[in-house]
Amino acid sequence: MNPGTTRAARSGEWVARPGRAVARLGRRGWVVVAVVLALVVGGAVTSRMLWHDPAQAGMPLNVDLEQSAGIRFTRVAVVADGGLLEASYVVLDPEKATRFQSDREHPPAIESEERAESTKRVALMKQGHQMRAGQSYYLVYNNSGGVVRSGETARIVYNGFVLEHVPVIG
């Protein structure tokens, strides 16, 4: 998800949603703005606005992995009654991302950080079309036997890079 953006139907381009112009403020005005922002940020933590973030809460980053693969992982979720695992990512560099998703022989492995188990069985709908920057895509993994479980943490291993402490939701 891209906060503050949506995509136009015909052009397919990401565009900013309507915003409100910020008026010129005095010192007192900025204090008010700061208080309001603090309230908004605090409220966001405990509100349903969380889902507007592009990544799930607590999702770690690995810049080296992102520069290598051209993608950023945004979510790992247990789905389908626990039997499948969905890993979502957003495209940062379409050219690299296309290579990443086309390399079917070397999918990222998802390893449990709780036990010595992992899965790299990408089972469904690995997409083969032109990828777009800012758009999210997904991989669906086999999760037989509950290799990775909701509430735990996992690591994503790809091309020598490791994204650790990924919270698993579901």
């Binding site: 889902w51 997904y138 579901g170």
Partner: peptide, 16 residues
């Protein structure tokens, strides 16, 4: 939409 259709009812990442 797929693959969100596979996610459980009341999935936390699809609150609405």
């Amino acid at each position: 939409s797929m693959p969100d259709t596979l996610a459980p009812n009341n999935a936390s990442w699809l609150p609405n």
